[in-house]
Computed example of a mutant assay.
Amino acid sequence: MRRRLSIPNLGGARAAILHRPHANVTALVRQLQAVGLEVDCHWPDLPASARAVDYLFIDVDTAYDDQFPWQPGEAPMPTIALIGSEAPGRIEWLMNFGVDAQILKPVGDNGVYSALLIARATFDARMGLTGEIDSLRRRLGQRQTVVQAVALLAARGKSEDEAYEQLRGMAMAWRVSFEEAAARIVGSANTSSEGGCEHV
């Protein structure tokens, strides 16, 4: 079942703007303060302390990778692009950088509130998917470790079912998870082979 999204409380949130001094920045700051955000403006570089803000606005027309204290696609907060130019090179940079919402320039008297909400929802969904993918990769790695452990135990003349049951018994005896027991057996076998020993 799809999780229902809710509107976050923006009061007290912090935003950073990476944009040269301009009327667009003045309009943006005015809108952000009106919905309760604290705002810091930076140019030409974003300090490492900006990692702690809740939202980041960037000027896509002039932005470049070295302005940010992280790699493209790894912004630790929802990012909103301020776009004035639709030049292919700028749009390509924007796609590679990875943003969660956008506002077209010139910035007027509205549009910031909805951009904040969309950026937060998009960022949270992306982080959730990243977490799920990491979890699936870990589980896949654990399954491969279990297969290796069973193969090591079966190499001693046991059937696959007997080796599997032996692994289960070891996990219970050691009071660890099935996967942890498998990792111990595989790790022990790797250490033994490096040391020239034969036992697991």
Results as ranks from 00 to 15, higher is better:
S188Y: 02
V150C: 05
A23N: 10
E194Q: 04
D124Y: 01
L37T: 01
I58Y: 01
A101S: 12
P106L: 02
A13C: 12
P21Y: 08
A48K: 11
D109R: 12
A15H: 06
H22W: 08
I58F: 05
M127S: 08
H19S: 12
F178N: 05
I91K: 06
Q166C: 10
E38N: 13
T26E: 11
G169V: 05
K105G: 05
F68I: 06
I17R: 01
T79W: 03
P8N: 07
G169Q: 11
G157D: 08
I83W: 02
R143I: 10
A81L: 04
L104C: 10
P69S: 02
L82G: 02
A183Q: 04
K105T: 11
A151Y: 00
R175W: 13
C41P: 05
H22C: 13
G73V: 06
A125W: 08
A181E: 04
A13H: 09
W174Q: 15
D40T: 13
Y113G: 11
R30L: 09
A16H: 04
H199G: 13
D54K: 02
S159Q: 07
E38Y: 13
W174L: 14
R30H: 11
P106N: 01
Y64G: 12
Q144L: 13
A189F: 03
R175M: 14
L10N: 00
S6F: 07
A171N: 03
S114F: 12
S114G: 13
E180Y: 05
P21K: 08
G196D: 03
F97D: 05
E132V: 12
Q166R: 08
T62M: 10
I118E: 09
R126C: 04
H199T: 15
E74S: 09
G169W: 06
V35N: 06
R120M: 07
H19Y: 10
M127P: 07
E160T: 15
A13K: 12
L37V: 03
G157S: 07
R30F: 08
M127K: 13
A171Y: 02
V176R: 03
L56T: 00
A163E: 04
N9D: 15
V112C: 08
D65M: 11
P72C: 02
A189N: 04
R51K: 14
A181L: 02
W43C: 08
A13D: 07
S192Q: 03
P78N: 07
V39T: 07
F97R: 06
D45Q: 14
N190S: 02
A16V: 05
L82S: 05
A15P: 04
N110V: 09
S85T: 12
A119V: 00
A125Y: 12
G84N: 06
H199Q: 14
A34L: 12
A27R: 08
D161P: 07
M77H: 07
M170H: 09
V25C: 02
K158A: 14
Q71P: 08
R51V: 12
V186W: 00
L117T: 09
W174A: 15
N24P: 00
D100A: 10
R20L: 09
L10G: 05
R90V: 09
L28T: 03
F97I: 05
D65A: 15
L32P: 01
T26Q: 12
L167W: 00
D161K: 10
T130C: 15
R156K: 12
Y55K: 03
D59Y: 00
R120F: 06
A115I: 03
T122W: 07
G89D: 07
E92K: 11
E198W: 13
L152Y: 03
A151M: 10
R51Q: 15
D59G: 08
T145W: 01
